[in-house]
């Protein structure tokens, strides 16, 4: 089971890396966000449309990367804590069962 879980994650990684290699070779391979491409499509459909509300606060570009990393780190931290906790719990249970024998 453990090995299979590793294989699933490796396959996910392989798709991501493969996509980056294929996409990077394209002429417009700058990896612009599809969200911003959709907003560009809005501008193409209705050139007169102007966003009627601006961002309340926009992080300076240098800071934005760090905030994205913070979001990922919070997620990975809590998720990793849970996974480690459950594994430790299973091992303790196993040890107790061994002692009982």
């Amino acid at each position: 089971m453990k090995r299979r879980t590793l294989a699933w994650s490796m396959l996910a990684l392989a798709i991501a890396i493969g996509s980056a290699l294929v996409g990077g070779r394209l002429r417009d391979g700058g990896f612009a966000g599809s969200d911003s491409r959709a907003m560009a499509a809005v501008a193409a459909l209705q050139p007169a449309y102007r966003p009627w509300f601006g961002f309340v606060w926009e992080p300076p570009p240098e800071i934005a990367g760090g905030l994205f990393a913070l979001q990922a780190a919070l997620g990975a931290g809590v998720l990793g804590y849970y996974l480690g906790f459950k594994r430790g719990q299973a091992r303790r249970r196993q040890d107790r069962a061994d002692e009982g024998d």
Binding site: G23, L26, A32, S34, Y81, Y82
Partner: peptide, 27 residues
């Protein structure tokens, strides 16, 4: 409680990652 937090954390983690795609855009 802890599993709920982990599920939320999974969404937090994955939605922070802009992944490259074969079309040359990211999402």
């Amino acid at each position: 409680q802890l599993l709920l937090a982990a599920s939320g954390a999974f969404a937090f983690l994955l939605s922070a990652l802009k992944l490259p795609s074969i079309t040359g855009s990211s999402s």
